[in-house]
Design a protein around this nucleic acid. Structure first.
Length: 764
DNA sequence: GAGTTTGAAACT
DNA sequence: CAGTTTCAAACTC
C-alpha cells in the first residue's frame, strides 16, 4: 500500500533503526540492565501481536486501547480487507510515533527501557508495511531466537509479515475464510475456538486458558454459521490483530483439509515456527473440549489431522447441526446407516443432544411418514434386547457419546434428555429391528417382518393372536417382544414399546397404535408431556451399577447388589416374586424405596436384607436355594436355546430365581425400563447372554452416570461409581443379574473394556 | 385362548 | 399426597 502513511511509517522505521545504531543507544544499552530486547522489540512490534502468550504484564493501557480501537474499527468496517488494513496502517503510524517518542524517552530515561509499557507500545506497533515486514521478520526472528522467553515473537514476526501480506492481499484470505465458514460448522467452530482463544488472550491475558477453552465451546457450538462472519472479522489478517489467530486459522484450515492453497512457503514456515507447543496443545485442548461437549472425536492432534479427519469432523459437526435443526433428517440418515455406524452416530450426534429437548419441538420431522425406518427409538432400552454384537457396538457408541438411556434394567442407562433419547431412538429401533431380523429361524417370520418393516416402513398391526404366536415362538429364542395395547394407543407408559422409547413394530398386536413413525409428532409430543410430568418417566427403572463381570467370576463375593429400582415397587400380593414386581422383573432386589408388602424378592428383600445382597448370608442363602434352580434353568436354557442365536441371547428373558416352574418368564421386552428380563435374571439362559448384557449394562452405566440424577445415584452403593472411563469403572455386583450364584462376585471389579463380543459359550 | 390377577400409570 | 381408575403385562386355567 503506497500511502503517505506507509511512507511515513517507513521513515519512522528507518529512524528507529538509526536510533538503535546510534552511540547513544548503545550507551544506554550498556548501562541498562535490561538488554536489547526492548529496543529490538520496538521495531518488531510483533510481540504484542503475539497475544497468545503475551503476559498480562505487557498489557499496557495503550495496548488495550489499541485493541479496542481495532475492534471498533472492525465493527465499523465490515470489510476487513483493505479498508481495515488502511486503518490499521494509520494506526500503525500513530503507534510508530508513539514508539519513537518512547524511544526518545528511553534515551532520556534509561529506566524507561524496562517499562513494559514501552515494550507494549513498541510491540503494538503493527508496522504492516509490506516492504518492511520482511526485514522486520528477520529481525524478529533473530530476536526471538535469542530470547527464549519470547517464543512467540518469532511467530509473531512471521505472522505480522503474513498479516501484512494478507493486508496487501487480504482479499485472498478472506475468501478462504469464507470458504471455511461455508464448509461447515466444524470449521467455524474450530475457528471460533481459535478466535475465542485469541480474543481471550488479547483482551484478557490473565484469563485462564482452561476456562477459556471450557467457555468457548459452548458459545461456539451452538453458534449459528453466521457467526463465522464475525470470526472472519476477528481473524481478518488485514487487521493484523492476531497473528496467532492467523496462524491458528491456517492450522485450522489445513486441518480442515482446506489445503489453503494460498499458503506460501513463508506461511508454512510460519506455521512451523508458530506451532508452538502451546498453541498446538491449546487447539488440541479445544478440540478435546469439543469432544466432551459435542462428542465429536476431535481429539486428533491437529498436526496429525488430515483432510479426512477434518472432513469427518466437519461432517460430525454438520451432523450435529442437522440434528439440532432437523432431527428427522438425522434420523433418516441414521436409519440408512448400518448398525456399525450407530456408534459413530451416537458419538457425533448424541453428544449434541443435550439440547435436543429444546429442539425437538421444532424438529422438522414431518417426514415421519417418509422415514424409511421407524425411527424413533426413544430409548436405548431396546438395546438391551439386541444381540451381543449390537449391544457392543452400541455400548461403545454410548460410552463415547454418553448416551442415555435405557430403561431397560439391563442397560443401566442413565436418564437421558428427551433429545438424547430421541437420538437414541433411532438407534434403539434399528437395533431392535435388526435384532429381530437377526433372530433365529424360530422367529423367521418375525425377522422377515421386521426386516420388511425396516424397509417398507409399514406397520401392520397384528392381531393379538398373531402376536401371541410370535411371542410363543419367541419363547424359545425370545423373539422381539412387543406390546399388546388396546386402549392406550401405545402412547402411554403402559405400552412397553413406548416406554422403551421405540416405535411399535409389526410384531406388536396393539390397536389404534400411534406409536409409529407416521405419528412421530404425536409420539414426541406425548413423550414430552409425560416427561414434563415426570422427567424420569423414560429413564431406566432399574439403576444398576454393578459389576456383572466380577459377579460372574467371583462367586465368593458377597457384595451387595448395586442395582435398584428407581422408584421401588409397590407389590401387595405378589410378594415381589413375580414379574408383576418391577424390581423382580428387573432382576434387582427391593430396597427401602419399595413399599411392597411381604417382600420375598429373591434378588433382595426390602427388609433387613435390604441391602439386598449386601447381607451376604441372606443373599447367599437365597441364592444358594435359587442357585440350583438357576443352574438347572441355565442348563435347560442352554440346551433349549442355541447360544448362537444372537437374538435369543439378546432377548432372552432371564429366568428369575424364583420363577415358578422354571419357565422362562414371558419374554421381556427391551422396553420397559424395567428391565426386563434381559438381563434379568439369571441369565441363565445363556451365559453368553448374560455376560454380554452385563457388559453392556456396565458400559451404559458408565456412560449414563453423568447424567443420572443424584437421587438415583445416591441410594445405591453402586451409584457411587462414577468413572469416566469404562475401564476404570467400578461395578457393583448385581445381585440380580440373575446370575447364577456362580457368576456372582464381589463388586470390585474394574470394568474392562468391553469385548466386542461376549462369549457365547457359557461361562460356567 | 380366555379369563384373572396384579401393580404401574394415569387421573382426580 | 392419597385414593381411584385405567391399563396392559403376567399369570392361570
Amino acid at each position: 500500500m503506497d500511502t503517505p502513511e506507509k511512507t511515513k511509517n517507513s521513515q519512522i522505521t528507518t529512524s528507529i533503526n538509526n536510533f538503535e545504531d546510534s552511540p547513544v543507544f548503545n550507551f544506554l544499552n550498556n548501562l541498562s540492565p535490561i538488554k536489547p530486547v526492548k529496543s529490538i522489540h520496538i521495531t518488531q512490534t510483533i510481540n504484542p501481536l503475539s497475544f497468545a502468550s503475551l503476559p498480562s504484564v505487557f498489557t499496557s493501557p495503550h495496548l488495550s486501547s489499541l485493541k479496542e480501537s481495532r475492534f471498533l474499527r472492525r465493527h465499523q468496517l465490515p470489510d476487513p480487507s483493505k479498508p481495515e488494513f488502511a486503518s490499521d496502517d494509520a494506526n500503525t503510524v500513530d503507534t510508530s510515533k508513539e514508539i519513537i517518542s518512547a524511544s526518545n524517552e528511553l534515551v532520556e530515561h534509561q529506566t524507561n527501557l524496562d517499562q513494559p509499557n514501552s515494550v507494549g507500545q513498541v510491540a503494538d506497533e503493527p508496522s504492516f508495511e509490506c516492504s518492511k515486514l520482511e526485514v522486520e521478520f528477520e529481525q524478529n526472528f533473530k530476536y526471538d531466537c535469542s530470547n527464549p522467553g519470547s517464543s512467540l515473537t518469532p511467530s509473531c514476526g512471521l505472522k505480522t509479515k503474513h498479516m501484512a501480506k494478507y493486508a496487501c492481499t487480504s482479499s485472498a484470505l478472506i475468501p478462504f475464510v469464507q470458504e471455511a465458514s461455508h464448509r461447515g460448522l466444524f470449521g467455524s467452530e474450530v475457528n471460533l475456538d481459535g478466535v475465542s482463544q485469541m480474543d481471550q488472550n488479547k483482551e484478557a491475558t490473565e484469563c485462564d486458558w482452561k476456562s477459556l477453552i471450557s467457555d468457548a465451546p459452548d458459545q461456539l457450538i451452538f453458534e449459528s454459521p453466521n457467526d463465522t462472519e464475525s470470526f472472519k472479522k476477528s481473524v481478518d489478517p488485514g487487521k493484523g490483530l492476531y497473528p496467532s489467530i492467523t496462524n491458528d486459522m491456517q492450522n485450522t484450515y489445513s486441518f480442515c483439509g482446506e489445503g489453503s492453497g494460498e499458503k506460501s512457503e513463508e506461511e508454512n514456515e510460519t506455521e512451523n515456527l508458530c506451532t508452538q507447543p502451546g498453541e498446538g496443545n491449546e487447539l488440541k485442548e479445544i478440540a478435546e473440549t469439543h469432544d466432551i461437549i459435542t462428542g465429536s472425536s476431535l481429539s486428533i492432534p491437529i498436526e496429525e489431522v488430515d483432510n479426512e479427519h477434518v472432513s469427518g469432523l466437519y461432517r460430525g459437526m454438520r451432523r450435529r447441526c442437522l440434528v439440532f435443526e432437523m432431527v428427522g433428517s438425522s434420523r433418516k440418515r441414521f436409519d440408512e446407516n448400518s448398525v456399525s455406524d450407530h456408534s459413530a452416530f451416537l458419538q457425533s450426534d448424541c453428544n449434541t443432544s443435550t439440547s435436543i429437548d429444546q429442539l425437538l419441538p421444532t424438529k422438522t420431522g414431518n417426514d415421519s411418514s417418509h422415514h424409511v425406518l421407524p425411527g424413533i427409538g426413544l430409548h436405548l432400552n431396546a438395546l438391551a434386547t439386541t444381540p451381543k454384537d449390537y449391544k457392543f457396538v452400541k455400548h461403545e457408541a454410548l460410552g463415547s457419546g454418553r448416551l442415555l438411556i435405557g430403561p431397560s434394567p439391563n442397560a443401566n442407562f442413565q436418564p437421558l434428555s428427551a433429545g438424547q433419547e430421541l437420538l437414541n431412538n433411532t438407534l434403539a429401533i434399528n437395533a431392535e429391528r435388526e435384532i429381530c431380523a437377526i433372530e433365529n429361524g424360530v422367529l423367521a417370520e418375525d425377522a422377515c417382518q421386521a426386516s420388511g418393516y425396516m424397509v417398507n416402513e409399514e406397520f401392520n398391526q397384528n392381531s393379538p393372536k398373531k402376536k401371541r404366536r410370535r411371542l410363543e415362538q419367541a419363547g424359545d429364542g425370545e423373539a422381539c417382544k412387543r406390546c399388546n395395547c388396546k386402549k392406550s394407543k401405545c402412547l402411554k407408559l403402559y405400552c412397553e414399546c413406548f416406554a422403551a422409547g421405540v416405535y411399535c413394530v409389526e410384531p406388536c398386536a396393539c390397536m389404534d397404535c400411534f406409536n409409529k413413525p407416521v405419528h412421530e409428532d404425536t409420539v414426541l409430543a406425548t413423550r414430552k408431556q409425560i416427561e414434563s410430568r415426570n422427567p424420569l418417566a423414560f429413564a431406566p427403572k432399574v439403576i444398576r451399577s454393578s459389576d456383572y463381570l466380577s459377579e460372574a467370576r467371583d462367586e465368593s463375593s458377597k457384595t451387595p447388589a448395586s442395582a435398584r429400582h428407581k422408584r421401588g415397587c409397590n407389590c401387595k400380593k405378589s410378594g415381589c416374586l413375580k414379574k408383576y414386581c418391577e424390581c423382580y422383573q428387573g432382576g434387582v432386589g427391593c430396597s427401602v424405596n419399595c413399599r411392597c408388602e411381604g417382600c420375598k424378592n429373591a434378588f433382595g428383600r426390602k427388609d433387613g436384607t435390604e441391602a439386598e445382597f449386601e447381607e451376604d448370608e441372606t443373599y447367599t442363602t437365597e441364592k444358594g436355594i435359587q442357585k440350583s434352580a438357576i443352574q438347572n434353568d441355565l442348563e435347560q436354557n442352554l440346551d433349549s436355546v442355541p447360544p448362537a442365536t444372537p437374538l435369543s441371547q439378546g432377548r432372552q428373558t432371564v429366568q428369575h430365581p424364583l420363577s415358578s416352574k422354571n419357565k422362562l418368564p414371558r419374554p421381556s421386552f427391551p422396553s420397559i425400563g424395567s428391565s426386563s428380563g434381559l438381563y434379568t435374571g439369571h441369565g441363565f439362559g445363556k451365559p453368553g447372554f448374560f455376560q454380554s448384557s452385563t457388559r453392556f449394562d456396565k458400559h451404559l452405566e458408565t456412560v449414563l452416570e453423568d447424567e443420572m440424577p443424584d437421587f438415583l445415584q445416591a441410594p445405591s452403593p453402586n451409584s457411587c461409581i462414577k468413572t469416566s472411563s469404562p475401564n476404570s469403572k467400578r461395578v457393583s455386583p448385581p445381585h440380580s443379574i440373575g446370575t447364577s450364584p456362580s457368576m456372582r462376585s464381589s463388586r470390585k471389579l474394574i470394568l474392562q473394556s468391553i469385548p466386542s463380543f461376549p462369549s457365547l459359550t457359557p461361562n460356567h
